[in-house]
Lab assay of single mutants.
Amino acid sequence: GIDPFTGEAIAKFNFNGDTQVEMSFRKGERITLLRQVDENWYEGRIPGTSRQGIFPITYVDVIKRPL
């Protein structure tokens, strides 16, 4: 089901994660935001896939912030 505490964002740019914990994505992908890790990073996942990880806040347009 849908978790009411998650947020939502759209990727503004392609992001290629450097490490296992970073999640790569392509511009235009819809991302579920799980939490804000710190002032620069979100943790999120791509709905319908097993992809999950952290990524820079500046790479996405936030539609709804996670609670």
Rank of each mutant, 00 (worst) to 15 (best):
G7H: 13
E8N: 07
S50R: 11
E22V: 05
P47Q: 11
I54R: 09
G17M: 04
I31Y: 00
G44D: 00
V62M: 07
I31F: 01
E39P: 10
I31T: 02
P4F: 14
P4I: 13
R45N: 08
L34E: 04
E8S: 11
I63L: 10
N40H: 14
P66C: 09
F13N: 08
M23D: 00
F15Q: 00
P4C: 15
F15Y: 13
T6M: 10
G53L: 01
V60N: 00
G7A: 07
D3V: 14
E39H: 10
W41K: 05
W41H: 11
P66N: 07
K27E: 09
T49A: 04
K64T: 08
G48F: 09
P47K: 10
T49M: 03
T58P: 08
T6I: 11
A11I: 02
I31D: 00
I31M: 04
D3H: 12
N14L: 04
E8P: 05
F25S: 01
R26Q: 13
E39K: 11
L34D: 05
N16E: 12
G48L: 07
E22P: 02
F13D: 10
G28T: 02
I63K: 06
A11P: 01
N14D: 15
D3E: 14
I10D: 02
N16G: 07
S50E: 12
P66M: 06
G48Q: 07
V37F: 07
V62Y: 05
T32Y: 08
G53W: 01
A9H: 02
T49Q: 05
V60E: 00
G44E: 00
Q52V: 09
E29G: 01
A11N: 00
P56S: 02
D61E: 13
V21S: 13
S24E: 04
K27D: 03
V37T: 05
W41G: 02
G48R: 06
G48E: 07
I31R: 00
R65M: 15
D18P: 08
F5A: 11
S24Y: 04
N16P: 06
R45D: 02
K64Y: 08
T6A: 13
I63N: 04
L67D: 15
V62K: 04
P4N: 13
Y59M: 12
V21R: 14
A11D: 00
S24P: 07
I31C: 02
D18T: 15
R65Y: 15
E8Q: 10
Q52S: 09
F25A: 02
G44V: 01
I57E: 08
E22R: 06
R30P: 05
F25T: 01
V21I: 12
G7M: 10
E43I: 08
F25C: 02
G7C: 15
G44L: 01
F55Y: 01
E8L: 15
E29Y: 02
T19I: 07
I10G: 01
M23L: 15
E43A: 07
E8F: 14
D61G: 05
N14A: 08
N40P: 03
D38L: 06
R35D: 03
G1W: 10
E8A: 09
T19V: 08
N16K: 11
I54V: 10
Q20G: 11
E43F: 14
K64R: 10
I63M: 07
V37M: 08
E22N: 06
F15S: 01
P56D: 04
E8M: 13
P47N: 10
P66Q: 06
F55D: 00
W41E: 02
F25N: 01
A11M: 01
A11Q: 00
R30Y: 11
G44H: 00
R65N: 13
R26P: 02
K64E: 10
R30K: 10
Q36A: 09
F13Q: 12
R26E: 13
K64I: 07
A9R: 02
P56F: 02
K64P: 06
S50W: 08
F55C: 01
V37P: 03
Q20S: 15
P56K: 04
V62L: 06
I46Q: 01
M23R: 00
R30F: 12
R65V: 14
Q36P: 07
N40M: 13
L33M: 06
